[in-house]
Nucleic acid binder design. Sequence first.
DNA 1: GGGGACGATGGCACCGCTGTCATTCCCCTT
DNA 2: AAGGGGAATGACAGCGGTGCCATCGTCCCC
Lengths: 349, 349
Amino acid sequence: MAGPDRKPTIIDVARLAGASIKTVSRVINKERYVSPDMQERIEKAVAELGYQPNMMARSLASERSNLIGHLYGDAGGPYTLEIQVGLLNRCRDHGYHLMIEEIDYRSANVEQRASAIVNQMRLDGVVLTAPVTDNPVVLRILEDAGVPYVRVTPQQESETSPSVRIDERQAAYTLTQHLLALGHRRIGFIKGKANHTATILRYTGYCQALTDAGVAVDPVLVEQGEFTYASAVPCARRLLDQHNRPTAIFASNDEMAAAVVAEAHNRSFSLPAQLSVVGFDDTPLAEMMWPPLTTVRQPVREMAEAAADILIGLLSQRGKVDWPKPVPHQVLAHTILLRQSTARPPAKG
Amino acid sequence: MAGPDRKPTIIDVARLAGASIKTVSRVINKERYVSPDMQERIEKAVAELGYQPNMMARSLASERSNLIGHLYGDAGGPYTLEIQVGLLNRCRDHGYHLMIEEIDYRSANVEQRASAIVNQMRLDGVVLTAPVTDNPVVLRILEDAGVPYVRVTPQQESETSPSVRIDERQAAYTLTQHLLALGHRRIGFIKGKANHTATILRYTGYCQALTDAGVAVDPVLVEQGEFTYASAVPCARRLLDQHNRPTAIFASNDEMAAAVVAEAHNRSFSLPAQLSVVGFDDTPLAEMMWPPLTTVRQPVREMAEAAADILIGLLSQRGKVDWPKPVPHQVLAHTILLRQSTARPPAKG
DNA sequence: GGGGACGATGGCACCGCTGTCATTCCCCTT
DNA sequence: AAGGGGAATGACAGCGGTGCCATCGTCCCC
């Protein structure tokens, strides 16, 4: 009845099972060389005491923390969350835990902070999402610390770290083709935040599709947004104010597409009859707005799962230090979702 | 040049500074009783070696992990993310790290999983969000482990743990009053998922406002949704199909309000002239849909920050074991956002 | 001038586990 | 019968810090 009140340790288990702590450790870690009889006794003792190994002690002794970190820059909407859900799915199944850290990549002490996170916590591995994926300071710290990391949608593939992505350029290309196929020739474009990978790739895809169709890219139809609703409002205004205004607008993400739609509603346009709009990302928003938005779905969760798989795969081969070369670069399939925000352009008056 | 290649430890620092490791430890932990001279020498040594204390070792020895856990049930959209951002803000400032774990509260091994998370990782404290806030199994595990926790928007305040919330009943009351003041008398209501705290409180506020205004609650106007867009579509249909249909609809969250709006658009209603719609939560969606949605903003991030503050406040008083009694229950202010989805009802034909 | 009180520092056990190596026992070979 | 090899187990030294207590020198005060 009395019993020690503190949490049971491996020593208590060993004592109760009549074994050495090392043997208990073997059972806990599912190592070989334990007789079935002994195994059973120990498992019983574990159950009886409700023993749970202390991760801190374990990590200290084994130099493995079983911690995976997710470093991100902007807590950008549903994207970040989906990433986390994906990571969590895998972590759970493989006994890892997820630590999340936001890194203000603009701040002066990025270095200090990133270093503290990586080195103090002794993370086993790290997953990077934009815009930290391409931050040289962070990457160097990771390299120096010898912590394996996987980048989701990096600007540029590297030989030292794996990556996961979709072909954004191709997606933008296809989406633009869709508009062209409907008969649109004046297609406006709202870019995302400067220097973001996505911004560049999506824009490139748009340009290429136009060019391939023999349509010139008209700079008057290209606006610079920042991936936010607010940033896109003036862009939409300028585009729709033109005397020879575009019959379709490609916004670099759904949020900005929503701004275009709102602005069109303001002017009492009937959508999609008078204006086609497409977005990118398939955020929940896309399906809930009116009219439902034609957009591209990135399998974000699956991408995160793939990243986790790659990471955990490596970590499981203790002893090996380095990535296999060449390091894996996965490209997952995207989906073009044709909804009701696109239609043929209005007949020429 | 040669120097040890492994990460420097406190011993290296002590040696370099000509001090004992204990004194170095004092400096690292900002304890008192270190002479300025000694302090400076040690700080210099730390900088020179780029020393970073090993959290694992520190935790093991001190029985503090500096880890705060966020346990949640559904990764419900922007809400969860906002919570995390809030928590992160505080963790960062106080030297804590955030571990996130999803708990499938329907699964059979909730107990095992929750226990593993709490006990193995030796979390210093935990923040709970719906629907784990009220899971008796999880709560018991936390209590047993003696891990302090704060609940965000719990179903019921408890004497053993602090909570943070807004007055949802009051918010729903006010919002309903707004509709009444515009002249609406037939106000539809779409409830959230059964058993959720929010569902009950919001509905109660609605009923009370009606009653106080001398309007009877008509069960025909009350539909049961599940907080999702899809679940609300049939609800919206049924409400709008009625011969004497409501002139306004109160959806228990924005997502369901979006479904109502979409359904109204489908029928080519002009909003808000023919139908007023209100939601709850002020998700990003609310501002981006058309027309922009009148809704209630919960200061989610601030709530998370408050929760973290409460938790960290307690943790900083090491030695004290228990919450001060009575434990704090914070109620933050909400905001009613009047946008363009509400108007006076159409004049009686 | 003796006795505190207090500032400053160090010594050392110990937190709970894993890695390494030694040991024992058994069966199999030659 | 001796030797060899592998399965099963244990002893023990850390991993890198912190907590507690001892020590030492000063300054102060009656």
